[in-house]
Design a protein around this nucleic acid. Structure first.
Lengths: 346, 346
DNA sequence: GCTTCGAAGTTATACGTAAAACCTCTGGGT
DNA sequence: ACCCAGAGGTTTTACGTATAACTTCGAAGC
């Protein structure tokens, strides 16, 4: 209490604990590993626990990993954590991992550009498996070759060499959006698509176009933008200001683009939703932060992470992984309404 | 090419590489560790590299960590990754870490509630150091006791037992906000404060109040809300609808609260900025996603992460860590303007 | 009274790597 | 002719843990 504690030159090992408790190192390992019923008396076990606690002992995980040949660590490969969706996926994955004594380390995949540093370098421990978003295609080949169990998130079912797959029913989500807008009476659409080349966006586009095509008298045009508010605004502004009859509904691949589209509309003096309906996708926090709040599709991001982690654990355990797509659902809010009465037909 | 490759029952070790190259394991270690100039001939080195590549050899990091006694891993403790600010801090820290062959593992600290699981369990490798946000106070005591170098981010300089500290000049940021609004002519303020009990928010409040107090004829009232859009809206709506002269400026502790405040204003039929100025803090993506765009203070989040990591590396290396607060600056956008002409004085 | 058996440990070993310490051979200086 | 230096390796060891294999001992069975 009076002087500084000893500078702890080196961390205590299980051998130190053994010495303090007057037992062998093996006994310490048995007790602390929970393997003692019938092998070690309760009295001795307690003595060991006291000694361990007293010394502030923490097992050296590097040694344990080496011994066991497993690190209980998964790599999560996502495009960028600043995208709330992936932050939530991580949160879900980390939660399930923690329940099973696993850790999750992140590899924010380079966005195509950049030198694409070694995914394994970001983990300072060897990995037991990989969970990867299909949006992070960049690093995938390197990961495939490593011979690790690979769980893919929201990826093309045609892709091969995957131990398990966790998908969202993205197509259904987009069909719900289209159905919602059609039911409101919209016929003239613009699809504000993400420029990111990934399976999930391809599906969104296809589902939208397929659904609209099945309804006579509809038209749809596609415009592409990078995945940020500014790019969305510029693209939408350009489209809305174009000559010819104006669309009455702007279907966006993502809430971020929808936020941009709303700004574009306001700049051009259009009211959302009176003059123009705008829909998003993902249901990020952003969707309820803007005015009007966005009609969008809620994706169970945390569930994706949880299920991805559970699938990986199942694969590592030689159990069959849960299968089937996660359902998504439409959240109708203030950014969609019937088209203005004077809108020309498509 | 014709049949499936052998099922790779076990990963190749440095010994396998040695066998394949016709050298000893030590030579492999020397070559691959880059320690060979003068110890191994270029021809042999090349042979080893070929063999390693051919076998797809990857060093077992658990073994390396055990041998070296260091895992080259830092733990980053933050409240939640879904907060863009912390996602950016992580990104910065991970980038610098990668440059130095370090990894970063996250510990999303429980928000006070919850069982506060062991911070060390989230890392499946032992740690070399910890970088912690002061907003993640929950897990801090456990981390302090571990005897690891601790770098604190944006924390009270009075706190002790810290190896290095990376702070933002938060007070200056709030003074800039206050100065900006005062210059526009505002005198009647409301401070929409975060309910989170943390140093950074305490400083924001104090700096605002101190600055305003120094100007005669100003008034300021404080209202508290949880850190989300909805809570911000409710709190702001309540305040703005209260009887008595209305404030002309709403200074928010965070962009998230500011977005909520803007929604509140619109609901009450007030125009921002004509009837009411609203300011945020942090300059999140949200700030430019809403209409009008928020006047706010830009915080160099990535820099915080980078500098935190550099400080930790310095400490681990027995070098002095860079010191001094990071500057922040006002970004004036559309949510602030002179008060309405008919506003009563404070 | 001898064997057997289970409880309660202990001893010994392996995991894969890095690096210190050691060995061998060749060429050059004197 | 002898020694020495240095290049180019090899042998050996240690890191801390988990667990298989072994030991010891007291009591129960007959």
């Amino acid at each position: 209490m009076t002087s500084a504690p000893q500078p702890a030159p080196t961390r205590p090992t299980s051998r130190d604990v053994a010495r303090a408790a007057g037992v062998s190192q093996a006994t310490v390992s048995l007790v602390l590993g929970g393997k003692w019923p019938g092998r070690v008396s309760e009295a001795t076990a307690e003595r060991v626990r006291q000694a361990a606690h007293g010394l502030g002992y923490r097992p050296n995980l590097a040694a344990r990993n080496l011994r066991l040949g497993s690190t209980r660590t998964a790599l999560l490969v996502v495009p960028a954590l600043t995208n709330e969706f992936f932050a939530r996926v991580y949160t879900g994955a980390a939660e399930v991992a923690a329940e099973h004594g696993f850790g999750v380390v992140l590899y924010p995949s380079p966005d195509g550009t950049g030198p694409a540093r070694d995914p394994f370098a970001s983990a300072s421990a060897s990995l037991d498996g990989v969970i990867a978003s299909s949006m992070a295609a960049g690093a995938l080949d390197a990961l495939r070759g490593a011979g690790l169990p690979l769980v893919m998130l929201d990826s093309d079912p045609a892709d091969t060499g995957v131990a398990a797959r966790v998908n969202l029913d993205i197509a259904d989500g987009m069909r719900q959006i289209a159905g919602h807008l059609l039911a409101l009476g919209h016929r003239r659409f613009v699809h504000l698509a993400s420029a990111v080349d990934s399976w999930t966006f391809a599906v969104r586009g296809r589902a939208l176009h397929d659904t609209l095509r099945s309804v006579p008298g509809t038209s749809v045009r596609t415009v592409t933008a990078a995945l940020d508010v500014h790019a969305g605004r510029v693209a939408a502004e350009h489209t809305l200001a174009a000559p010819g009859p104006r669309p009455t509904a702007l279907v966006c691949d993502d809430d971020i683009l929808a936020a941009g589209a709303c700004k574009a509309a306001r700049r051009l003096g259009l009211r959302v939703p009176d003059d123009l309906s705008v829909t998003g996708f993902d249901d990020l926090a952003l969707a309820t932060a803007v005015e009007p709040e966005l009609t969008t599709v809620r994706l169970p991001a945390e569930q994706v992470g949880k299920r991805g982690m559970r699938a990986l654990l199942a694969v590592l355990d030689d159990r069959p992984a849960e299968t089937g797509s996660l359902p998504v659902h439409l959240v109708a809010r203030g950014s969609s309404a019937p088209p203005p009465a004077d809108a020309p037909p498509a």
